[in-house]
Design a protein around this nucleic acid. Structure first.
Lengths: 193, 193, 193, 193
DNA sequence: TTTTAACCGAGACGGTACGTCAAGTCTTGAG
DNA sequence: CTCAAGACTTGACGTACCGTCTCGGTTAAAA
């Protein structure tokens, strides 16, 4: 039992060290040797827990940053979505997290295991929460029954990821609001009669 | 003149070899040494042209895949957008290109030079074309004058990139159509009176 | 203990391989990569043990060729010196050793660490033995008390090295004898009265 | 004629530059590229004149340091030898020349062409002059007719080279004198009756 | 309490690739 | 025709990590 507790301590130490080092030198220059050295741990002790640097990093980022990104349900869908997405955007704007999260997504592009882990442990749960919140509103009649919830989720997330990963312009509340407003007010391009 | 021509030949050979190797082993296992060896070229000859593997790969991908992704202008905005985006999606679905493009975007997450190059040479031009096509329609009165063109572009691109990079589900024409229809028909979630 | 033993084995293997390769291609074309490859060893494993090619080679040559070049003491100084120097000359004439030893001395001309190692591990000990043998003879009254032993050593060694390194004519027993005779019979150039 | 003169100028310039650079960075770090660059000359222009770095360096050292090391003939052999050898030793003690000459001899150990060039252009001529001076003395009856002149030359040179190349202790006039005195006074080790 | 087996830190090991450097050859355009 | 300039192939350098594999030296549990 004690052994297991020490084991758990070590697991935590390693993840924390990995994160610290990633903050200092960036994910690209993060090395298992440096993590092991700094954590005062043998390399095997790391490899016994995680099969690759990517998965260790994924675990570190997700486990140590367990901020509740849960949706409130105040009854006002739009306000709830806005608040939740603002929180997410704030997190990504807080200095280390944006680049680290970008690095993680980058890693997922080469490493299928990381991609799978990222999806299963973060992306899908978040998407599900968004859809669930929308569905709740739909049930209450606040949203039209033939509104495509999955698509709405994609239209909300997509532009943010596009900005984060591709154009790398800063994510602002104002931009989030424009997307939300377009989605909810209707982004109808048709010329008015 | 001859020297310059031979030089240009070599540049092309190197890019082609880089691409070939990337197809065979994937970007992650692509090495400068292997490229140099296969291309029958010294490593310096590569480093004289590109400062890093990422930029060589960026150049290879963009230069050797100069498919015109220009928008037609048939007068029907929706049809033109649909055709153009379908073409892009088809390209990404053609086996090697999807993973390679994903790898490139992944690399851009660690390497600012790649990110900048990708933006300047591909993302921005494409975005500009989309906006230009929309603006043309706006001028002709086919689209409402207060329609936010930049946002429309982001709403069109974002979900596709989200699917490509994050959920990694296949990109289909059907999905493109859903997005286009939502955008143009209006994705109004408000309950009908 | 096992680890240390395996370590020592590897050290020996590397030195032996270095020597083998030097025999085949000569010191000038000897490369760390070739040694590592042939020995089935990573380059780091070599660099962990020796900081440069020169010092590895020095170690290989001296450790693996630990022929006792000790002076006998039969009571007859001249005979003892002659025997010992003939042995040294024979060694240098045995095909690989002459060129390899020349290469080592050559390396010592650019590389102070090799020069120091060569002196400390080979030149000085040999010189000391020669002087010691002469001193023993002096003690026994076989040699005049004001005979300059250091100079005698230099007069014995110098011409041999001159021939080995500079004129590169073959070293023969006959040449050794001429030097010994001159030294012991007196090389008095003064015209006889 | 003009072309040839310019050609000769260039040859001189290259050798001078090689020597200058060798003084600055040492022979080991001397590179053809650096010489060409500094001399304002294409690499081919160098390779057209000398087939290798070693031979260029040999040429530079010998051609640009044409100090007359000729023996005077004042009638006093011993004094003449002493003066000449002191001059040589002084030259080697003047800072750059000792190390450079050592480097040249070092190079000769790997490179037969350098060894041959060094012998033909410097070692043999010097040896011949020494022997010639001794022979002159012999003819005048100042030296015994059965004195082995070649051996005397080797006994004079050998210890100096030994000190220069092997033990790397400083060469002093005092050491030269000890050798000369031993040679001329007779280094007779036999116990006096 | 003593034994014993798992676990650990440390870091050596065989590899692979890095990015740099220089060698010696080859090509071009200016004079 | 000769030259400077410098691109080119080649090949080695020394470094950095990878992921695997010992090695002793603690422990914590079973005996």
């Amino acid at each position: 039992m004690n052994a297991r507790r020490r084991s758990a301590d070590r697991t935590e130490t390693i993840m924390q060290t990995a994160l610290d080092l990633a903050l200092e030198v960036g994910y690209a220059k993060l090395s298992m040797e440096a993590i092991a050295g700094r954590a005062g741990v043998g390399k095997d002790t790391i490899y016994r827990r995680w099969p690759s640097k990517g998965l260790l990093f994924l675990d570190s980022l997700l486990s140590l940053n367990q901020r509740a990104l849960d949706y409130p349900d105040t009854g006002d869908v739009l306000a709830d979505l806005r608040q939740q997405i603002h929180a997410a955007v704030d997190l990504l704007a807080t200095p280390p997290w944006g680049p680290l999260y970008r690095a993680l997504v980058g890693e997922a592009q080469h490493n299928p295991a990381v991609a799978a882990g990222l999806n299963d442990r973060f992306i899908q749960p978040q998407a599900d929460k968004t859809v669930a919140r929308l569905r709740a509103a739909q049930t209450k009649g606040q949203v039209s029954p033939d509104f495509d919830l999955e698509l709405a989720m994609a239209v909300l997330s997509g532009p943010l990821y596009f900005q984060l990963l591709i154009t790398q312009e800063p994510l602002t509340h104002e931009y989030v609001n424009r997307i939300l407003d377009a989605l909810f007010a209707g982004l109808d391009p048709r010329p008015r009669p």
